[in-house]
Simulated scan of single mutants.
Amino acid sequence: MVDDRPFLLLSVRPEPAAVEAEVASVRLATELPAERLHHLRLDLDRLATVDLDDYAGVVIGGSPFNVTTPEPQKPPVQQHVEADLVRLAEHALERDLPVLYTCYGIGVLTRVLGGTVGPEFGEAVAPVAITLTDAGRADPLTGGLDAPFTALVGHKEATTVLPAEAVLLASSAGCPVQVYRAGARVYATQFHPEVTTDDFIARATLYRDYGYFPSEELDAIATVVRGASVTAPRRMLRRFVELAGG
């Protein structure tokens, strides 16, 4: 039976220009019509303002926040964003709601599940090769992807200890945990699945002074990114929509 409920995109970035671009990227990548992709900014609104049972699935965007920031140093907006992402994880695992956490969100989910997040496996802003595990080759979300495939990354922290109940689906040379599944239909990716190379360059430009890379290296990074072929992550995002009933 086809589930014709809409999907929900949760933005957790506080920068309006980045939010607008992320929404456009996710809409194009999922190929969902506008009326089937609802959007909520968790930096402005709370998760309690929506009924999660109204949605076929949920996608969480990335953020410049880091879960490893000491709690007293986290701004109030980050604290309430993380609290809502924790509630979403608990709800999804209990109610079998399809959810895809990306980038920053994988750190939140890892902590909810009892894993560890740290700076050891941060990756520079770049295209990287992603390799599937045996479980990844068999998983309904990632199993149809050619491997290795190229994805776009840029993060200061990552999962260092996989949660005991998580199933590792993919890794990269610099980051052992790139994709995993928890329960039946809760997924997390360290890379950004929604972006094209042009999208990623625009995002890097916006965040050039956020400490991901020396700002004077932006042009060189853009050249490398522009030369990459990055298609599999967007197919994976479309597959998530298909699996959730879309």
Rank of each mutant, 00 (worst) to 15 (best):
I201G: 08
L109G: 02
G136C: 12
L145Y: 02
I106D: 07
L162T: 00
A129T: 06
A158H: 05
T102V: 14
G154S: 04
A166V: 00
A184P: 11
T133F: 12
Q178E: 04
P119C: 15
I106L: 15
V99M: 14
E194N: 06
V153A: 13
H155L: 07
L152G: 04
E165Q: 13
G115V: 03
L93P: 10
H91P: 08
A147T: 10
L132R: 14
R111D: 00
L168W: 00
S171M: 02
S172N: 07
L93T: 05
P119V: 15
A126H: 12
G118M: 12
T116D: 13
Y180W: 10
V179P: 01
P140M: 05
T189H: 15
T205E: 12
E94G: 13
G122T: 06
H155T: 03
D84W: 09
L113W: 01
D146H: 09
D96Y: 06
V161M: 12
C175Q: 08
A151Q: 03
D84Y: 07
A182C: 08
G144H: 05
G118L: 10
E82I: 09
T160N: 02
L93S: 07
D134W: 09
G136N: 08
G154N: 00
L169I: 04
L97C: 14
R203T: 12
L152P: 00
E165I: 06
D146A: 15
L141S: 07
A147F: 04
V112R: 09
E194G: 06
L132T: 00
G107S: 07
V125K: 02
P119A: 15
E194Y: 01
S171G: 07
A89S: 12
V108W: 06
Y104A: 12
A166G: 01
V117Q: 10
S172I: 03
P193I: 01
P98L: 04
L97S: 11
A138N: 12
T131L: 14
K156A: 11
L100G: 09
V186A: 07
A182M: 05
E157T: 04
Y180N: 09
L169R: 11
A202K: 09
L100K: 10
T110E: 02
L100Y: 05
